[in-house]
């Protein structure tokens, strides 16, 4: 830090940017956090890290600063296979006319206990 003020807040001028860094970007990881025993891991967000070990450590620092988890998963984003959002109708079966898959469809037994 340049400048002589006690806070460093003296508005001194900045130098030109240094030479560009040559490296491959770190891969992207998806982070899943289990908030307590008995619950599933839930997607919390993503981060960049050079390897799995660093991804796990970064995930701990980034997503569990307030005791949010008892267990972490990190998964390379490139390993996740997703469904096509624009093919929603073709891919997901239409629920239309299939009310019988829900308990509320069966009304004749109303009033019968423990059913």
């Amino acid at each position: 830090m340049t400048g002589g003020s006690t806070t460093g807040d003296d508005g001194s001028t900045a130098p030109a940017a240094g030479p560009a860094e040559k490296r491959q970007p770190w891969p992207l990881w998806e982070v899943f956090v289990r908030s307590s025993r008995g619950l599933s891991h839930v997607h919390a967000g993503s981060l960049h890290a050079p390897d799995a070990d660093m991804a796990l450590r970064n995930a701990r620092d980034l997503y569990t600063r307030r005791n949010e988890g008892v267990s972490l998963w990190v998964v390379p984003s490139s390993a996740i296979i997703t469904s096509d959002p624009s093919a929603k109708e073709q891919f997901f079966e239409s629920p239309q006319g299939k009310d019988y898959r829900h308990a509320t469809y069966y009304t004749k037994s109303e009033g019968v206990k423990h059913l």
């Binding site: 830090m1 340049t2 400048g3 460093g8 807040d9 003296d10 508005g11 001194s12 001028t13 900045a14 130098p15 940017a17 240094g18």
Partner: peptide, 13 residues
């Protein structure tokens, strides 16, 4: 502003 240059310099550094 009063600190623009300093903030940018520090970030770059």
């Amino acid at each position: 502003g009063p600190c623009n240059a300093q903030r940018m310099e520090r970030r770059r550094e």
